[in-house]
């Protein structure tokens, strides 16, 4: 992340996203695949790291091997995208709001206070000495004699798909295919995200 100053001199925290060029590599159709979608690929990959099957797939679309492939449904209704069409950041406008989907940073095995925002005991007095962040009761006793599914407990946290909605596009840098988004996006540095926009 970084920050830039807007026209009023306000300091805006920004995340820089390299968005494109994305190349259309396949069109999913109702007749053939049962659903409508556009498959897009981003960022070059070395040929030796590409499987033979994927090489064939990219050759069909007439592009060099790519690293990331994603499918987009609910694309603009009147789209006329074909193989090899290139999408750049000029599809965004400054000031509009977008959603960003990414994989959140893995936090490992975490307790309920961090993972589910339990409040813990709160104080170390009233007979407490080692249960400050304990989850407390997970249910009743003889009935039902079991713990109901879905009770929030400690466990693996993070590393999941997260969507942050309504992030403002602060700036678009056409020549480098960069989008500056106000605020943070899910995931570690250099990870891949999907930008969505609903019309």
């Amino acid at each position: 992340m970084t920050s830039i100053y807007d026209g009023n001199g306000k300091n805006i925290p920004c995340t820089i996203i390299e968005a494109g060029p994305c190349i259309v590599t396949q069109l999913r159709t109702k007749e053939h695949d049962g659903y409508e979608a556009i498959q897009m690929a981003f960022e070059d990959q070395k040929e030796k790291h590409t499987t033979r099957a994927m090489k064939g797939h990219f050759a069909k679309a007439g592009v060099t091997p790519k690293k990331v492939i994603a499918e987009f449904t609910r694309f603009e209704a009147d789209h006329q995208k074909v193989f090899g069409d290139i999408l750049r950041v000029d599809i965004f406008t400054e000031g509009e709001f977008i959603d960003v989907v990414g994989t959140s940073k893995g936090k490992g095995f975490q307790g309920v206070v961090k993972r589910h925002h339990f409040h813990g005991v709160g104080e170390a007095t009233h007979g407490q000495h080692n249960r400050l962040r304990a989850p407390g009761s997970v249910g009743a006793s003889s009935w039902p004699s079991r713990v109901f599914p879905g009770i929030r407990m400690a466990g693996r946290m993070g590393g999941k798909k997260v969507k942050v909605i309504n992030l403002q596009v602060v700036k678009i840098i056409l020549e480098k295919n960069l989008v500056l988004v106000k605020g943070a996006v899910p995931g570690a540095n250099n990870s891949y995200v999907i930008i969505e926009r609903y019309l």
Binding site: I4, Y5, E18, I173, K176, L180, N189, N190
Partner: peptide, 16 residues
């Protein structure tokens, strides 16, 4: 461009 270069480019270009 890697991450550091990208951030540097944006900062150099858009911050006086």
């Amino acid at each position: 461009m890697n991450r550091a270069e990208t951030i540097k480019y944006v900062e150099d270009t858009y911050i006086e």
